[in-house]
């Protein structure tokens, strides 16, 4: 979306610059319970993007005044490590990170059954270790796994993926390069078990008639990621099956 030419052709003979087809996700790896001190934690790697999520709570509020009488307060911090990008990123929270923290929090608020824990606080921390596009959707996917690991009641697992448009064609799970030189980036996150969307953003330009197709593609990707999330969780407790 920078208007400049991409250094490599983004789409050539139906293949993307990294050899994927339009509907292919990057390779995904997930782990849960990686942090000892957190109540729940998860690590997720999708392509070169790598995030760690930690969940604490429900716990007593650090300050009395911040709680709500009827439900738990969710606090979310999305943060990019200084070494996560090509050039050093200032570790102080940027405008973008504060905004992403908010949209991730709102996406998670839609799934967590907050009314069960009045007067408490649930803390979600997401640290981006390596950024290569799709960090917000990776953050949501990892955070929902960490919430499940912490045993916090949820309506369902949340998974997210971005759809982009490069050289006039819709593609699934765009990376940094496609985001930078493509025409559009549309992150979507949802609860596949309930068929509900919890996050939908659009950056760039897509035609109105392309939107249903883009959403359908994202949903296909979300379903695949959700299946992986379930597999990771089931493996951890596999001894009980």
């Amino acid at each position: 979306m920078s208007g400049k030419e991409s250094p490599v052709p983004l789409l050539k003979d139906g293949k993307r610059h990294d050899g994927r087809g339009p509907m292919d996700l990057r390779p995904i790896e997930m782990k849960i319970g990686i942090l000892h001190n957190a109540d729940g934690s998860a690590w997720l790697k999708i392509g070169k993007t790598e995030v760690v999520a930690a969940v604490y709570g429900p716990r007593e509020p650090p300050m009395k005044g911040m709680v709500l009488p009827d439900r738990a307060v969710i606090r979310c911090r999305y943060h990019m490590a200084p070494f996560s990008t090509e050039e050093r990123k200032n570790p102080a929270p940027s405008r973008r990170e504060i905004e992403l923290s908010k949209v991730i929090r709102e996406a998670l608020e839609a799934t967590i059954l907050t009314h069960l824990f009045p007067r408490t606080v649930i803390d979600v921390f997401v640290e981006v270790i390596q950024a290569d596009g799709g960090t917000r959707t990776a953050a949501i996917t990892a955070a929902s796994l960490a919430l499940a690991d912490a045993g916090i009641p949820m309506r369902g697992l949340v998974a997210g993926v971005a759809v982009g448009k490069v050289q006039g064609k819709l593609v699934l799970d765009i990376d940094e390069l496609e985001d930078m030189y493509g025409e559009a980036d549309m992150p979507v996150a949802g609860i596949p078990t309930l068929n509900k969307i919890v996050l939908l953003q659009l950056n760039g330009v897509i035609e109105p008639h392309e939107f249903p197709q883009a959403l359908k593609m994202a949903w296909e990707g979300i379903k695949k990621i959700h299946a992986l999330q379930k597999k990771v969780l089931a493996t951890k407790y596999g001894g009980e099956q």
Partner: peptide, 16 residues
């Protein structure tokens, strides 16, 4: 644990 886990117990995940 086999003798402790009843056969009808089933593992479920959030949203199932």
């Amino acid at each position: 644990m086999k003798q402790q886990t009843e056969p009808q117990r089933k593992l479920v995940l959030p949203g199932d």
